[in-house]
Each structure stands twice: as structure tokens, then as C-alpha cells.
Amino acid sequence: MRGLLNRIFLVDLFQGLWVTFRNQHPKYIYTEQYPAERPKVAERYRGAPRLNINPDNGETLCISCNLCALACPEALIVVTSERNEATKRKDLTTFTYDTSRCMFCGLCEDACPVDALELTQDFEMATYTREGQIWDRQMLEEGPKPTQYKC
């Protein structure tokens, strides 16, 4: 009997409509105005890689130990260095990082003993060419410079 009344008066329909009506409240509306408003990503976000430089003297922190390259599952980091006879250290010559194959797993970041390589909060890394995805040392130190859209 009750079921019949429910059917006649379309109770299920109105129940559903009441839910959708309640959700009209601005509190429940969830829209990201992306290009106009940049979302704030979390602090631990694993985004664009960066090769840190020492803020005091502008030298790179990287000691060319190659650990990041060995840790990477995709083997996409290539570090080359040459031995500096004066200081008996290895100086970093080139550092390439192929972001097109990177899966942002963070293993390289964990492997780095001196916190030179870091995955940052930048996430706008699109390029027009495939080659543009391969970042060299300069790019890694400066970080991506995406166009900012304002409206």
C-alpha cells in the first residue's frame, strides 16, 4: 500500500530533486577557475624538477654523485662531470632530465644525498615540441616559466 502511494506520488523523484536542490547552495559548489586562479598545490607536491643552487655563492649544490641517475627506474637522468684538479672534486658539467619520460615518483629526489635535486610545486610543464621536454642544467636551475593568463 505504502509502495503504491509512493509510486503514485512520485516520492522517489521528489526525494532526488530535493537532494539536487539542497546542493545548489554555494557552499557545495566546487569549481576551480584554473588559468585565472592558480590552484595551490600541496607542499609535498611532486612536480617540475629543480636543481638547487647555493644561495650564498650561486654554485650548484650537486656533487655529481650520479645517485639520482641510478635510482631512477626510467634511467632518464644523465649526469656528466669532470674532475677539478684544484679542489679534487668533481664539477658538474651537464645535467639532463627528460621530463617526458618522468613519472614523478620522487625516487631521484630521495636518493640525492645533498638535496640538490628537488621536485617542486610547479606543474605547468607543457611544451610545443618533444625536445622541449628534455631539460638541461640551465632549465633545471631556473625552473619553468609558464605564460600566465589573466582575465
Binding site: 600541496a42 607536491y45 621536485l119
Partner: peptide, 9 residues
């Protein structure tokens, strides 16, 4: 994302 830095993978 806050915990580990990625949302999906």
C-alpha cells in the same frame, strides 16, 4: 596530495 605529493599515482 598533501600526504605524499601526488593525487593519483
Amino acid at each position: 596530495e598533501k600526504y605524499c605529493g601526488a593525487r593519483l599515482t
